[in-house]
């Protein structure tokens, strides 16, 4: 039972880390969006991800029951303690790269949160029910953008294809399960992510086809995020995210 509790704690932290790192990346678009409405859209989506992170961290703190708060989990852990998928921490790149990543993650989130709404853990199921409504909306937008950019000008097509190619290797990790996570699947708590791959690939094929883009064929894959092995980019992200709490511990609004 104790090990299951520990697994649940790690699960909640990893899901919080996925949401926080991507939410932070999207927030970097604030005042840098290609035009005002898109600036608002990117930061609104960012807010949804940060909101999710808060829900997962709050629950993690409750499961751990050691007096740590959601803020401690966000601001006082180092790179090696973060468990997010690498795709979420990569720098924004150009607008095509940001939207291509969003399409991949939104499509994944649809399947993942749909599964998580059936979790035997009522808190996780409630967070998932909330998140999936937002993801549906996010996907509508990222899908439209990829079709618009892919089937757009030569320049936008080329950049979007490059983004898809560059990101592809990072998607494999989203479908790799750890032994600890499998324990939670057996207990009816977690989603078996390996089973989501077929539907995800089919959805991506459909959208990319509509966008006149090619689906990458390379099976080169990179991972390690769930084990705390990150790209060099996460350190810089956390430096900005955590600066205030590290410099002025306990500071509040």
């Amino acid at each position: 039972m104790a090990s299951l509790n520990k697994a649940l704690l790690n699960y909640c932290i990893a899901l919080g880390d996925d949401s926080l790192t991507l939410g932070h990346r999207l927030s970097e678009w604030c005042r840098n969006g290609p035009f005002l409405e898109e600036d608002l859209a990117l930061t609104n989506v960012s807010l949804d991800f940060i909101g999710r992170a808060r829900l997962f961290y709050t629950y993690a703190a409750e499961v751990e029951d050691q007096g740590r708060s959601e803020d401690d989990l966000a601001y006082l852990r180092d790179c090696r303690d973060y468990r997010n998928f690498l795709i979420n921490e990569l720098p924004n790149g150009d607008f095509a790269f940001t939207m291509a990543r969003q399409l991949m993650v939104d499509t994944f989130d649809m399947g993942f949160f749909e599964g998580l709404t059936r979790s035997s853990d009522t808190t996780l199921a409630a967070i998932a029910a909330k998140a999936i409504k937002e993801s549906r909306y996010h996907l509508r937008r990222s899908q439209d953008w990829i079709i618009c950019l892919g089937d757009g000008t030569d320049e936008s097509h080329e950049r979007t294809q490059k983004a898809i190619n560059d990101l592809w290797a990072y998607t494999a990790e989203m479908f790799e399960m750890s032994g600890e996570e499998q324990q939670l699947v057996d207990a009816g708590v977690a989603v078996d992510r390996a089973t989501l791959k077929t539907d995800w690939t089919t959805s991506m094929q459909g959208i990319l086809k509509q966008a006149t883009l090619d689906i990458p064929t390379s099976d080169w894959a990179i991972g390690g995020g769930r084990e705390g092995q990150h790209t060099e980019h996460l350190g810089f992200l956390l430096a900005e995210l955590q600066f205030l709490q590290r410099t002025y511990p306990g500071q509040q609004w």
Partner: peptide
């Protein structure tokens, strides 16, 4: 529709 997102998360423009 101008934008799927407006001045707050709950609105579109």
């Amino acid at each position: 529709l101008i934008s799927e997102f407006g001045s707050t998360a709950c609105k579109a423009l």
